[in-house]
């Protein structure tokens, strides 16, 4: 399973809800506004560190670049669209919209 999150982590407990239910070890992919969760030093950094403790966490490069997010939390893996497609091919997708 691949959990994909595209909403801002500051909204409606979206990321929090995903992390509560995603089985340990399943990869988590951040894209669109979801990538704000990967920025270092924010109020939600603890949430993402918690995610990194039990999931591989990916963030889409184009979305990071668009938003000017340069300083990432250590351990987040930056991927391009080809990497996005590869993950989707390898896992059944659970879009956490």
């Amino acid at each position: 399973m691949l959990f994909t999150v595209n909403k801002s982590p500051y909204l409606r407990g979206n990321l929090e809800g995903c992390l509560r239910l995603a089985p340990a070890g399943t990869p988590l992919l951040l894209y669109e506004d979801g990538v704000y969760a990967a920025a270092a030093g924010t109020r939600v950094e603890g949430l993402l560190r918690q995610a990194l403790a039990s999931h591989p966490v990916y963030a889409v490069e184009a979305d990071l670049k668009a938003r000017g997010i340069a300083r990432l939390i250590e351990g987040v893996r930056v991927i391009d669209y080809a990497g996005f497609v590869e993950l989707v091919e390898q896992h059944p997708v659970v879009p956490w919209l």
Binding site: S8, Y10, L11, D33, Y36, A62, D63, K65, A66, R67, G68, A70
Partner: peptide
């Protein structure tokens, strides 16, 4: 306010999304 502050951050480059830089 809230996520609205992200509209005015420096370093935005959405060219690969086919969009213009809002900031």
């Amino acid at each position: 306010v809230e996520d609205g502050v992200f509209a005015i951050t420096q370093g935005q480059d959405p060219s690969s999304l086919g969009m213009k830089a809002i900031a």
